[in-house]
Amino acid sequence: MELLIQSIVTGILLGGLYAIVGLGLSLVFGIMGLTNIAHGNLMIMCSFIVMVFGTVFNGNIILMLVLAIACMVVFGFLFQNFLVNKVIDKGPNPALLVTFGVSIVIQNALQLIFGADARSIKSAFATVNVVSSDYVSISGAYLANFVVAVVVIVLLSLFIKRTRMGRAIRASANNVRAAELMGVNTKLMYSVTMCIAMATACIAGLLVGNTFVFYPYSGPQYLIIAFGVVVIGGMGSIPGTLLGGIILGLAQLLGSYFFGTGYQIFSGYIVMLILLTVCPAGLLSNAKRK
């Protein structure tokens, strides 16, 4: 019984981490109809960047994060502006394949630079147990993941919903022609969207690196998690990522509780496939026609 409660609590908290891993993917899909296959590798790249800044600045976590976000926003802008924007009007496949190619390049570049060793990002709260009672114990890292994820998701939702730029981004997703006629530079809005997605990927990269070890080839693994989150929650729905993350986290932890630890990831996949089959457009779908 204690173990079951523990599994549920851990599953939900893990879901927060998964949600933020999938957030950038969902945003990019919702706004420009692009499935960014490079998302997983980009996120792991963020983990490495944060790690590098961490060794340089000796673990000042805010400074690490801000610098990493700055780097990734620039990278995201260049990536969108010079690669994706050039092919995004030519149908779905060229853009998809560009992100695929970039994904391979990033993964191999990381492997060349950092080698194949396991890495992690050290922080003060990673190993502390915040709650530890007879029934349940909660690690600081997991709790921080969840809180940060919720905060980021709420802030991003508000930004997209309420601000002038958020409106312009939604307008570009809704009707490119009308948006251009209102004076919106839609391609620039796509680039802004990618930059925001990269910023969330940085936060995700930090949290992942702080919670688990990561390798240069961990990207695809997180890409699948992101896919799962987004697919369950509905492509393009920002609040949906939180729901998707929690369902996926619970599926994994409960799978591991009932069938053994070896089946943690497997049961996550099975739940994803079942949900994909039952409601092919996700639970809170907001996918844009593109």
Binding site: T35, P92, L96, F227, V231, Y269, L273, L276, P280
Partner: peptide, 11 residues
């Protein structure tokens, strides 16, 4: 579409 792509990979 893209859900098929993801689905096959998950399998």
């Amino acid at each position: 579409g893209v859900y098929f792509t993801i689905g096959t990979w998950i399998i």
